[in-house]
Amino acid sequence: MYYIHKIASITHQDSFNQTDVNDSLVEITEDAVLISPDYKKYILPASLRRLSPILRMAVAAAKECQEAITIPFEAISVGTALGCLTDTEKFLNVINTVEGEILSPTAFIQSTHNTISGLISLELKNHSYNMTHTQNNLSLEMALIDSMLCCDEGKDFVLLGVADEAIDFLNKLKPIVLPENSIVTSGTTFFALSKKKSKSEIGFKACRSIIKAKDIEVDIDLFLRELKIEINEIDRIYTNQNSLDYPKEMVVNYEAYSGLYFTANAFGVHLAHDWLIKEAKKYALIVNSGCNNSLGLILLKNDKA
């Protein structure tokens, strides 16, 4: 077990520093906006002025996790599907509009995927292991697998996080690259993880990434069988799929609350975590299915239940 000592999410829901994120959920609409904390509480003005939304929210969520555990993280593992899109697009505009050879560098500097994890190490003054995974909708799973490895290798506390941001341009990619009726949003979720028991005694039990899934229900069965768990032991499934063949009352569609970004399954984990505490239930499964038939499975367990 890899226990969750803190979760911090900034999303289009009022999710930051809530005792139970399920309390104030509303179904996402086209006009929903990212609900941001006062970033000045987390980032000095000298740094803040340069930062795009994805960097601001990731640093704030990471700092909340650091504050909760007080001792420094021994590894930082970040997942992002599309990275720093605001700065990427900004620099594309710079290179296509500015004539001459002198170009503003800031957007370029902040356009690489690892700007997020690098900035977190800088803000936390953390010299430890620092990794950035980007595997489309399986980016959380990849960063989580790495975090689990870090714990197994003896690292005490690991900072695991994901972040993705929406830019208007993404809406142009509907319905060709992105699903037609999706609401493209931004979001970040960070976790403080350790093999040490947390107060809630809830943690990640297992994670599986499948590049080409054949049949979601069959893959879920295989995953659970390896863990010697029956499907009827699962108390709830959090998924972005509407067509799963399970009783309706046990399935929650997290994307209806997060909107679409490719690491939103981390918000599904957050919803599941808070629900397991409140209902004192044992298992929640997060089923993250991508348009390219990829499948991510994450099992959360509550030791107290």
Partner: peptide, 18 residues
């Protein structure tokens, strides 16, 4: 001072040019 750094120095070069 204002706490500027080497990235800002590059932005100053852009400013003088533009």
């Amino acid at each position: 001072g204002l706490g500027l750094d080497s990235i800002d120095a590059l932005e100053f070069i852009v400013l003088l040019d533009s």
